[in-house]
Simulated scan of single mutants.
Amino acid sequence: MAKVKYYYDSEKLAFKRIIPKKRKKLGMALLFLLSAALFGFLCFFILANTSFFETPKSKLQARELETMKLNYKLLTNKVQLMDEALTAIEDRDNNLYRVYFNSSPINEEERRAGLGGVNRYKDLEGFNNSDLIINSSKKVDEIMKALAIQSNSLDDITKLAKQKEKLLAAIPAIQPVKNEDLRQMASGFGYRSDPFTKIRKFHKGMDFSAKTGTPIYATGDGIVRKADASLSGYGNHIEITHGYGYMTLYAHLSKYKVRAGQRVKRGDIIGYVGSTGRSEAPHLHYEVHKNGEVVNPLNFYYGSISAKEYVLLAKLANQENQSLD
């Protein structure tokens, strides 16, 4: 039963009953219902964001979401490790491999340039984590491009290495006559006394004194260009082109063991010591040419003699004596 309320009427000196208006009652009822609705919505919102009313499906989705976040974090770490490993390879490529093979390094802008053109990541926009996904995709694409550039660079290095092997094999790096077969190193490179005119003139090679028939060896890989007596004063001689600007000449031979056009390897016997042409005694006159200019053969004997033997040979070669041709 509702309470009855009164008020005191001072004019009539009596208490009178308060009769509430219907409109006010309706307003109060609506206010109560609105408050109850707001309170209920608030309680629902709070409960909905707790695990109290989670369904099995929502729990499964939550676990899947956490697993995806963990996998994404692991993937990001792997991408970072890949990038660090690639950076190390790029550094070795520029500062070791390319330096060794005298090749220009690849600049950083070329290696890590972005992928231009149309928006490649438009399909990834509009999601909750779009920025994160797009940045990761860009990083992966950048690494893929850098890997392609590095792969091409390593192909170039492989080619340079093969060329380096050919170069090292082509350089005339041994004595043309073995030490045990030598009587003496008769004359070196430079100004010497001519054995016939006694006039001081430039001697273009080195003379190795040995008995007739002593084997003569190719000092580097190459192709026999000549095996004849076409050069005046050289008698029977052989010219070998080695590539990379190198050519060697072997003169005063008693006989040949190769012919023009034949390919030879370092250490192959190409002929035998003699005294043909303008020669005072059996010996081998040996020359090394680089880019059309004669150079001192003494600088190329690192492949067949010891340091002690080299010092002795250099001492003998530098004596300004008489040549044998």
Rank of each mutant, 00 (worst) to 15 (best):
Thr197Arg: 12
Asp181Ala: 14
Asn135Cys: 05
Leu124Ser: 07
Asn318Tyr: 07
Gly233Gln: 02
Cys43Ser: 12
Phe41Met: 10
Asn179Pro: 07
Glu11Tyr: 12
Ala29Asn: 02
Asp93Met: 02
Leu316Ile: 10
Ala146Phe: 03
Leu38Tyr: 06
Lys12Cys: 10
Met206Tyr: 08
Lys211Gly: 05
Glu90Met: 02
Phe44Thr: 06
Pro195Arg: 02
Asn95Ala: 01
Val311Glu: 15
Lys201Leu: 10
Ser275Gly: 02
Lys315Ala: 09
Asn236Met: 08
Thr87Gly: 05
Asn107Gln: 07
Lys5Glu: 13
Gln163Ile: 08
Gly116Leu: 09
Glu287Tyr: 01
His203Leu: 09
Lys22Trp: 13
Phe41Ser: 12
His252Leu: 02
Leu160Gly: 05
Lys315Glu: 15
Asn299Thr: 12
Tyr234Trp: 04
Arg266Tyr: 11
Val273Glu: 09
Thr87Val: 06
Val224Gly: 00
Phe300Pro: 01
Pro172Leu: 08
Ser306Gln: 01
Tyr191Asp: 15
Asp9Gln: 05
Ser136Met: 15
Arg259Met: 00
Arg266Met: 14
Arg111Ala: 13
Leu313Lys: 04
Ser323Lys: 06
Val118Lys: 14
Ala88Glu: 04
Ile46Ser: 06
Ile174Pro: 03
Ala314Trp: 09
Arg266Glu: 14
Ser323Trp: 07
Glu84Met: 11
Met28Trp: 05
Ser151Gln: 14
Asn128Ala: 12
Asn95Thr: 03
Ile19Tyr: 15
Ala251Leu: 06
Pro282Asn: 02
Ile134Ser: 04
Ala170Glu: 12
Lys69Asp: 10
